[in-house]
């Protein structure tokens, strides 16, 4: 089993059957978590580099754990500890890592297109862990995995993404992935945070949260970056909470089966009320678990391109 591609940069040009294959692989990976020894030798001798040019605790530790559970040698470099701070270019950093024998470079970068640039320049596989506002495919895949696990399917579901769509790579990757699997995707947020012509991506745009919520199966709540308010994109935090915050009252009229998701880290009491985040409908902690499984699946499918149907035992 393997992917048809050297790199995994986003879901824009990934087909539905490929997404299903990744989700299936992740299911097998997740099964490993239930064992007493949560580790398989599959990627022994493979080297995985986590190259993080942007602060991240969650995604980095998730990739770190995923690589370790597959027995790969893993090296994590973040901006503050690498020579990037000294002005070394992304290209030179990556080339250095490549000659050190990296099989997969996992990259997180604040500039959109950074992962694609790297993929063109180095022979190692590149796995995008988030580039600017462009793509965050592993997050979208873990979101889809969680939805499928909880609701049994994705096709035909109504999924609402709430918040700062304009600056969100999570939203973009979810839109590509979910629409490919036949879900109806809605987006809502302040008009100033909805990017132009997003409806051409196949989504319905709402500016009224309560209207957007009618009939949905999943609500995926994005983190609101507080600096957006400072930049004048919306007037105040309390106004954001009032018009776009998800709370019990808003959810009271909806089905109790509606899933509540959040990619984290949450601003409790702003975009999501604590009682919702910690409530029965919330699958936020399961998203974290599934994140490790999805990342194991992708590392396996990329680093294992030259492996022969090796089993996971």
């Amino acid at each position: 089993m393997s992917l048809k591609r050297k790199d995994f940069l986003g879901l824009y040009n990934v087909e539905a059957d490929e997404i299903y294959e990744i989700l299936e692989t992740a299911k097998a990976m997740k099964e490993i978590f239930t064992r007493s020894v949560k580790k398989v030798p599959t990627l022994r001798g493979k080297t995985i580099v986590n190259l993080f040019f942007e602060p991240s605790t969650r995604t980095k530790s998730s990739f770190d754990l995923a690589a370790k559970r597959l027995s790969a040698d893993v090296m994590s470099i973040s901006k503050s500890t690498s020579s990037v701070a000294k002005g070394e270019t992304l290209l030179d950093t990556a080339r250095t890592l490549e000659v050190m024998g990296a099989d997969v470079v996992v990259i997180r970068h604040s500039a959109a297109g950074a992962a694609e640039f790297l993929a063109r320049k180095i022979k190692a596989s590149v796995l995008n862990a988030g580039d600017g506002a462009h793509a965050h495919p592993t997050q979208a895949l873990l979101d889809m995995y969680t939805i499928k696990e909880k609701l049994g399917k994705i096709q035909g579901l109504k999924v609402l993404i709430v918040g700062d769509i304009a600056h969100s790579r999570v939203a973009r990757s979810n839109i590509w992935g979910l629409t490919k699997l036949g879900a109806e995707v809605r987006v809502t947020g302040p008009a100033t945070l909805i990017p132009k012509e997003i409806s051409k991506m196949g989504v319905k745009v709402f500016t009224d949260l309560d209207k957007a919520l009618v009939g949905v199966d999943v609500v995926n709540i994005l983190r609101i970056q507080l600096e957006r308010q400072a930049k004048g994109l919306f007037p105040s935090i309390r106004e954001y909470r009032q018009f776009y915050g998800i709370n019990d009252e808003r959810l009271s009229g909806l089905s109790k089966d509606v899933l509540i998701m959040h990619p984290g880290p949450m601003n409790r009491g702003i975009e999501i009320e604590s009682s919702v985040a910690d409530g029965d409908q919330s699958v936020i902690t399961e998203q974290v678990t599934n994140g490790v499984a999805i990342r194991m699946a992708l590392l396996y499918l990329l680093a294992g391109r030259d492996l022969k149907d090796e089993d996971l035992n």
Binding site: Y12, A112, G113, D131, G132, A133, H134, A135, R169, R172, P195, K196, E197, I198, K200, M201
Partner: peptide
């Protein structure tokens, strides 16, 4: 340029 392509590429737009 601000439009469909800036939206899908995630690049900051100039209207």
């Amino acid at each position: 340029n601000e439009g469909y392509y800036s939206t899908i590429l995630g690049l900051k737009p100039v209207p």
